[in-house]
Design a binder for these strands. Structure first.
Length: 656
DNA sequence: GCTGATGTTGTACTA
DNA sequence: CTAGTACAACATCAG
């Protein structure tokens, strides 16, 4: 029996420690082991990735390659520049591969890609070994133990996890690796389609990702930012397993911090050092095993029984939330990333809704500009010139550094969606996807749904104020002073609402408050924009809009959402109709032009007559429900049809 | 099916 | 400065 010739396919597991998949590869006692990375055009052209996350990936790859070489001088990470879907068949043949091993990934795209690669392996007679290692529990297992349903609350995760059993203890890194075999390729590179390219703006140089299979020097080296044509990264955060393990050691060494950590009590205004661990980007790239993190934290908690914090607020609780989002994504697939056709998402008629591809039922990546005002709000939010220093400081930190505190994410997400701009959460999620170094599709999508009260969370009347909230954490405004330096000299009395400062003081402190962000300076004087709306007014409008949408009671898979007839159930100009004229499923709906959409007004108390008149067909009244009792006069109120098991996923459209 | 408590992370006001 | 309360009101969970 000849010894196995193994490809170990690195993806989001850029580490040697606690890797069940790598251990499984070594357990085959291979003759040769090829550690490879496939430079996937999906991430180069289709997924939104900014320079900071690219840099972080390269950090991880360089560190990993170095660590591999330390274990065997005749090995390193081989970066191969072709789509895995076209590469593998050729690679199996060229290197006479017998086994392909990789870590399981339940991300919607990854699942589709891996299914295809597994198919190619079968075709080539190559055995495939897949192991879980990305989450505490296997997300598919978690869903199974949750009665086949997406995990939508932390108690469901804990209950399902109990049924699965103990979270495995981490396994040590290998102390040796087999060497590479012959690395001749002997086949042509299939160049990927570079259009459409959502990342064109991330580059300022010539894009040469696919110059040659093994790179410009034919040595399989990790690319450089320059080579990829990417703009220079501005993040101070560096990736790599070595840095990750060092950071974890430092955190765990502080037993008090580790044992008593409570997320809601960590300051979103803290910087140098931050109040949370900053381990999330390491877990995204797999340069840190979440199970190593879990057990090192849990061991400290066990040692300090009694005074230690508990899930969900503790450190281990944060990891359980991560598993919850992975479980929801694993159950829903691509639908998880959009409201349209997602049974878990409440339907809210946000501004700037996604365009839908009617043949697939998927969002296209483009959106309808139903309101010029909302479009301006989105642009100013993204660029950090809303005129609210707390929001702008966070967005500027996000753009520059690729990371902001979890509660800061709450603040800007609430502000963009249900607590200010009434813009679709999918727009915000796209910006985070582009800029976060720890962008994890499942967690990002889940958190945006949470904050926008689309799924997971529903208390829309709890609304973050861009003034009161940061005041609670940082009375001096030091965070704002760092990231919005033009306000650095303002008195703390005005630091979160500088437009209230007298003109004379503004001049004295070297910054005028005027304009919409398009003017940055005026001679010697700096300029910071006026707030783009009066927040208390907008908050009230948004809360009324949310209340109204909740009353209408549609979900992403409601027939009226699928065919576009939902518009008839919402008042024109009440916050917020989209004013669009194209139905998502191509259904043209009669609809007056929403002229002057700038002036949204709060809807009257309770649902308007329109809602009582036009019920959502397919919904039914909840007789005797206390919500109806409290609104007794509103006889047409519609609520969600109670779903029974098996009804959650109507097989209405085809996916994948 | 009902009730009451709870839900990682609100605000504004009062005492 | 901190603790408690009303605000207006959602979904889930335990019993």
């Amino acid at each position: 029996m000849p010894k196995p010739r193994v490809i170990y396919w690195f993806r989001t597991d850029l580490r040697l420690h606690d890797s069940p998949a790598l251990a499984a590869a070594l357990a085959l006692s291979p003759e040769v082991l090829y550690p490879i990375w496939t430079w996937d055009p999906h991430y180069v052209y289709r997924a939104r990735v900014g320079p900071n996350r690219w840099q972080y990936l390269l950090d991880c790859q360089n560190d990993l390659s170095g660590s591999i070489t330390k274990l065997n001088p005749r090995s390193k990470l081989l970066v191969i520049r072709e789509a895995p879907q076209t590469l593998f068949s050729k690679l199996f043949r060229a290197w006479r591969i017998t086994h392909l091993v990789f870590e399981k990934d339940t991300d919607a795209y990854a699942k589709e890609r891996d299914d295809e690669v597994v198919r190619l392996a079968r075709e080539a007679g190559v055995q495939v070994v897949v192991k879980t290692g990305r989450t505490l529990y296997d997300p598919d297992e978690l869903v199974k133990m949750n009665n086949g349903k997406p995990t939508m609350s932390i108690s469901q995760v804990i209950a399902a996890g109990k049924k699965i059993g103990a979270i495995p203890r981490p396994i040590p890194a290998p102390d040796w690796l087999p060497g590479l075999g012959d690395t001749d390729l002997g086949f042509e590179q299939e160049k990927p389609k570079s259009e459409p390219d959502v990342n064109a703006l991330q580059r300022d140089g010539h894009e040469a990702s696919y110059s040659a299979l093994a790179g410009p020097n034919a040595d399989f080296a990790v690319p450089t930012m320059e080579e990829l044509g990417l703009k220079v990264a501005t993040t101070p955060h560096r990736g790599g397993e070595t840095a990750a393990l060092r950071a974890l050691d430092e955190i765990i060494a502080n037993e008090e911090y580790t044992a008593t950590f409570e997320k809601p009590k960590t300051a979103p205004t803290a910087f140098e050092p931050q109040s949370t661990t900053l381990l999330s980007p390491h877990m995204h790239f797999g340069s840190l095993s979440c199970r190593l993190f879990y057990w090192r934290a849990q061991d400290v908690v066990d040692k300090h029984k009694g005074k230690a914090s508990q899930p969900p607020t503790s450190l281990t609780g944060q990891l359980l939330f991560r598993d919850m989002y992975f479980g929801a994504q694993a159950a829903l697939g691509f639908r998880f990333g959009q409201t349209y056709n997602n049974p878990q998402c409440r339907f809210i008629p946000w501004h700037l809704p996604s365009k839908i591809d009617t043949s697939t039922g998927m969002i296209t990546g483009e959106y309808q500009v139903d309101s010029a005002e909302a479009e301006a709000h989105l642009r100013r939010w993204k660029e950090g010139c809303t005129g609210f220093p707390w929001i702008d400081a966070l967005m500027r930190q996000l753009k520059r550094e690729g990371w902001i505190h979890h509660l800061g994410r709450h603040a800007v997400a609430c502000f963009l969606t249900r607590g200010g701009c009434y813009v679709d959460w999918e727009r915000g999620a796209e910006v985070f996807e582009e800029w976060l170094i720890d962008h994890e599709a499942a967690c990002n999508i889940g958190n945006w749904q949470w904050l926008s009260c689309t799924a997971f969370f529903a208390q829309f009347y709890r609304c973050y104020s861009p003034v009161a909230f940061p005041q609670k954490w940082d009375k001096e405004g030091n965070f704002v002073r760092k990231y919005v330096p033009e306000l650095a000299r303002f008195d703390k009395k005005y630091i979160y609402e500088p437009w209230k400062a007298p003109i004379a003081d503004q001049k004295k402190w070297g910054c005028q408050i005027r304009g919409d962000g398009s003017i940055m300076t005026d001679g010697e004087m700096e300029v910071y924009p006026k707030p783009m709306f009066e927040f208390p007014t907008r908050r009230d409008i948004c809360i009324q809009g949310m209340k109204n949408a909740y009353h209408v009671g549609l979900y992403g898979n409601s027939p009226q959402v699928l065919d576009g007839s939902w518009r008839r159930l919402f008042d024109d100009q009440a916050e917020g109709p989209t004013g669009g004229t194209e139905g998502p499923a191509g259904a043209m709906v009669e609809h007056e032009d929403n002229e002057g959409h700038g002036k949204a007004r709060p809807v009257a108390e309770g649902p308007s007559p329109k809602h009582t008149k036009k019920m959502a067909a397919g919904s039914e009244k909840k007789a005797g429900h206390k919500r109806e009792a409290s609104q007794g006069t509103l006889d047409g109120m519609v609520t969600r049809k109670k779903k029974k098991d098996g009804e959650v996923f109507p097989n209405r459209t085809h996916f994948g």
